[in-house]
């Protein structure tokens, strides 16, 4: 099936690039959206040479909702199945947030508000077409607030809840929503951070994402074993958890 089109938000991220490349190999059309136009142009060229039906660079800035309409309009011009994958997000160090709580606004906008508003504007189009998939990248950090990154985690938790509701709504129209909760992935975000273990490659996560889309899974952890790690972490009683440093 080559009449599929995927909107990739935050297409410069390592996970997004790996996903776009895997999709290119399947011959889909790609709208690669983000802020670094020069880098996106290289990614688009790469995806085309790797088999994408087309690959175009679009602007997307989670902090500028005024720009969302143009991207949605461009997508609507493509016939056939429309899909979207949201990789945008930001994770400032908790210490930076502690020093400047004003950063919380950006964390919420980048990880929740911008993506949710975009998806909400896109949803009617997918509903009208009666198919397609939405992939939202959450985080294991959103499963429980922890000392190390609870503002980021809180924004991701909001996004998880939003995706859950969106799935509930769009499922009725035949549109599937996948929530992806990556553990540690070998990206710029985790490069050189202390305490990393069982780090997955972006390619492995991309494969897991596309498999989840094919199998219409609802919530996946990537790699899969984070489901069990997070199950344990969620089960720790709060009186104990509040004393932990994990």
């Amino acid at each position: 099936m080559t009449d599929r089109t995927w909107i990739i938000l935050g297409a410069s991220s390592a996970m997004a690039r790996a996903t776009a490349r895997a999709l290119a190999g399947e011959g889909v059309g790609l709208l690669l959206a983000g802020r670094d136009a020069a880098d996106l142009a290289l990614i688009a060229a790469d995806c085309k040479l790797r088999g994408a039906r087309f690959a175009e660079v679009m602007r997307f800035d989670a902090r500028n909702a005024a720009g969302f309409a143009a991207l949605i309009e461009r997508a609507s011009a493509e016939e056939g199945e429309l899909n979207a994958a949201v990789f945008v997000g930001s994770m400032p160090a908790q210490a930076d947030i502690d020093a400047d709580p004003g950063l919380i606004g950006h964390v919420v906008t980048d990880n929740f508000r911008g993506p949710a508003e975009f998806l909400h504007r896109l949803a009617p189009l997918l509903e009208a077409r009666g198919g397609g998939s939405i992939v939202g990248i959450g985080s294991v950090a959103g499963d429980r607030g922890r000392l190390g990154n609870y503002c980021y985690g809180a924004a991701k938790a909001a996004f998880h809840t939003y995706l859950s509701g969106l799935r509930n709504r769009l499922g009725r129209a035949g549109v599937h929503v996948v929530t992806v909760k990556p553990g540690f992935v070998d990206t710029a975000m985790t490069w050189g951070l202390p305490g990393m273990f069982l780090v997955a490659s972006p390619d492995a996560v991309a494969r897991a994402i596309l498999k989840a889309v094919r199998k219409r899974r609802n919530v996946i952890y990537a790699p899969f074993f984070w489901r069990w790690i997070m199950l344990i972490i969620r089960m720790v009683p709060e009186p104990i958890f509040k004393k932990l440093k994990i």
Binding site: S12, A14, D36, A38, D39, L42, T187, A188, W191
Partner: peptide
């Protein structure tokens, strides 16, 4: 260092 983009 592992740059993810040419600008990096």
């Amino acid at each position: 260092a592992r740059p993810e983009r040419q600008s990096d």
